[in-house]
Computed example of a mutant assay.
Amino acid sequence: MLPQQDRLLVRSLGSASVWTHDASCFNLLEASGYRTQAAVGVWGTTRFGNIQVGFEHPIEQVRLAREMGMFETERFIADCEAAFAADSSHKAIREVVARAMSEPATVLKSLGEPKRAGSQTLFHSDSLTILNVIWAPGMMVMPHNHRMWAVIGIYSGREDNVFWRRIPGEPNRIEAAGAKALCEKDTMPLGSDVIHSVINPIDRLTGAIHIYGGGDFFAAERSEWDSLTLDEHRHDRARTLRMFEQANARYEASLRTLDG
């Protein structure tokens, strides 16, 4: 028997096998029914959080992730695509997101600890977009709409949403209509006509998965409302990018102050 730190943990499923050199996951894998065995030929490797795993066949990547309750980005995207193909509303995808958010630590390990505010595109098509959104501490996003449905899932931190409605007789202005705080593990759908603003009220970065369906998120004509006057104007992507950079500048300055 090889020393524990050098063991290859293998489980045969048909003609396929799974292995890892990572001793830190030895007990976890063995408890799941995996056994130690000599090395086998490997189709490829991937990383689930901090665990490096190899496969003789690609289907084993999916099986191991599901059995060990781990978040794997490519599998998550595939599950979202399948859910959307089965039901073009938000309902099926909400279930996929809720399942992933039920284990926020595994999502965090897979996507990486947030370092700065920004929006990373994980998947984009003309009808479905999946983003990894990071909000800086204290960051506020002005009221805006999407003109398509959305599902939001929080895997780190907190995101507070304020909901708005158009004022009768003043079609270009809005008023507050409600609010909801989203914490780790929370998932929330938004209808295609929803107007909301977002704030990260805590003193650390917040990480969230945002999914938009029923249209091309980057091509859609959307509106946003001035934070001071609440007047409507066309969404300005360049302004949004500047907002993220300004939030990062404030966040990084606060870190330097703490270090000093």
Rank of each mutant, 00 (worst) to 15 (best):
F123A: 10
F123Y: 15
F123T: 12
F123P: 13
D126L: 08
S127W: 06
S127A: 05
L128T: 08
L128F: 09
T129Y: 07
T129G: 02
T129P: 10
I130T: 05
I130C: 02
I130H: 04
N132M: 11
N132F: 10
V133F: 15
I134E: 04
I134N: 04
I134F: 06
I134V: 08
W135L: 06
P137D: 04
P137H: 11
M140E: 14
V141T: 10
M142Y: 08
P143L: 00
P143K: 01
P143V: 00
H144K: 00
H144S: 01
H144E: 00
N145W: 14
H146S: 00
R147S: 00
M148P: 07
M148Q: 07
A150S: 04
I152L: 09
I152H: 14
G153N: 05
I154N: 07
I154W: 12
Y155D: 01
E159K: 15
E159H: 14
D160W: 11
N161G: 06
N161I: 02
N161Q: 09
R165G: 09
R166E: 08
R166T: 06
I167D: 06
P168Y: 02
E170T: 01
E170V: 03
P171S: 05
P171M: 04
R173I: 00
I174M: 06
I174N: 04
A176L: 13
A177D: 10
G178F: 07
G178Q: 08
G178S: 04
L182G: 07
E184V: 03
K185Y: 11
K185S: 07
D186R: 06
D186W: 06
M188L: 12
P189N: 01
P189R: 04
L190I: 00
S192V: 08
S192E: 12
V194Y: 08
I195N: 05
I195Q: 09
H196P: 15
H196S: 03
H196A: 04
I199V: 11
N200P: 13
P201L: 02
I202P: 07
I202E: 05
D203T: 09
R204V: 03
L205E: 09
T206V: 05
G207K: 10
G207L: 06
I209T: 02
H210C: 00
H210S: 03
H210L: 02
Y212C: 01
G213F: 01
G214Q: 08
G215D: 00
F217E: 01
F218Q: 13
F218H: 13
A219P: 13
A220M: 13
E221V: 13
R222L: 12
S223I: 09
S223Q: 14
S223P: 12
S223D: 12
D226R: 14
S227L: 08
L228R: 15
T229R: 15
L230G: 03
L230P: 11
D231H: 15
H233D: 07
H233A: 12
H233N: 14
H235I: 02
H235Y: 12
D236G: 03
R237I: 15
R239K: 15
R239S: 07
